[in-house]
Design a protein around this nucleic acid. Structure first.
Lengths: 215, 215
DNA sequence: CAGTAGGCTTACTCGCGAGTAGGTACGCGG
DNA sequence: CCGCGTACCTACTCGCGAGTAAGCCTACTG
């Protein structure tokens, strides 16, 4: 059934809880990504979700709860996308990394808002929700680190793996931001850029070649 | 001359404007970095600065103005530190990059609050101040890109320079965050990690070697 | 068809924080 | 010793936004 609200807009009524929760989360991700956590208002979120504010509180709880729910959903999506990418990639580590990068940039390209919420907003908040996100990021770093360790168990590689994984993840994040200003590139092309940078570097490191500062 | 405030604390009085402005900026950087832009209150900043709120407004203007002033000061400090590092490094591009990285990580280690404000808070705000910071970052990326272009003017290098510079800057930022969890490392050691990753990679790229995805 | 439960709303309270009005103290030049 | 400007303060206003009270409407259930 339908009805018209004060502005004359048509508004669907009496939808099941599941559907409303999805609407609310979608709206929240959009508003959080655009305004930032604090500047986002529950009023605006409820308006975008086309539902009244008390429903938001009834279904998703407080503003912090809602934000945490956004983080959780988007982070899960991203990690699943990457895991899917890596899983079908055989066992050559470089190919696994390549598929992981492709999946990552594919996700960022497709869900910019999600990416904004994850990368910018969540990490800027000191609150308890940031933990949620930092854990996910840590998992991503671990995944990459494990992958790098696969390439060789030389002592040099072991010592560097987690730091290098952190650097690689950061490079990926930054390149994703760069990509927003260069939308003419495909996800694959961007992934290839990063792959070249890090793999040709790791290729040397694995073979024991290291850059040395001059005396 | 001195006096005691309500809490009995001793409080310096009638200081010249310059000194107060420094105090206020120092306090603001600390509070912004700890709480984030929106969660930081002018009341807390004025309290930390040990001065009353109207003075903050009289000297530095609105909250946005104050934040922009923080960004400007800290970004200038950082860029100067890096420029100083690079300037005394001769003309070998790898050595220049090495000194730049050392200077960068040295700064981050010494001024964590400044780094927090620059990296996390500023980039998360959509407002006009973010522009200030993004410009600085762009300058950093340009500096790195120019440096990379020095290494070779092969077509491959030219095509990749700005993207690679973005990736490198991101890797540096991320590694700086990683460093906060591994304080046992020296700034030089962290810089060396990143140098190895990117230089050994670029070394190959410059010589025309590229990683190829399998068919 | 009465009862009820859950989807949904309007219309509030209330505290917090940005920004200000309107002064008081103190030093300095005459 | 008298302005007078500048450093500085207390004590407000006022709007915005988180969270809630109190109920309305309708689809199903027995």
């Amino acid at each position: 059934m339908r009805t018209n609200d004060a502005a004359g807009r048509v508004r669907a009524k009496r939808l099941p809880r599941e559907v409303r929760e999805r609407q609310i989360l979608d709206a929240a991700v959009g508003v959080f990504s655009q305004r930032g956590y604090h500047a986002a208002s529950m009023d605006e979120i409820s308006e975008v979700a086309d539902i009244s504010k008390p429903m938001v509180y009834a279904y998703l709880g407080s503003k912090e709860d809602l934000f945490a729910a956004c983080i959780r959903r988007e982070a899960t999506r991203l990690m699943e996308a990457i895991a899917d990418g890596v899983s079908g990639a055989g066992d050559r580590p470089d190919v696994q990394l390549w598929h992981g990068l492709r999946a990552f940039f594919g996700f960022v390209g497709e869900y910019r808002d999600s990416w904004q919420v994850l990368h910018r907003q969540a990490s800027a908040q000191g609150g308890p929700f940031a933990q949620e996100l930092l854990d996910m990021r840590r998992r991503a770093v671990s995944l990459v680190a494990a992958l790098l360790l696969n390439t060789a168990d030389s002592e040099a590689a072991t010592l560097h793996a987690d730091a290098m994984a952190a650097a690689l993840v950061g490079a990926g994040e930054s390149l994703a931001d760069w990509w927003l200003d260069h939308p003419e590139e495909s996800a694959g092309a961007v992934a290839a850029r990063l792959m070249n940078l890090v793999w040709m570097g790791f290729g040397n490191l694995v073979e024991g070649q290291m850059w040395q500062p001059p005396k």
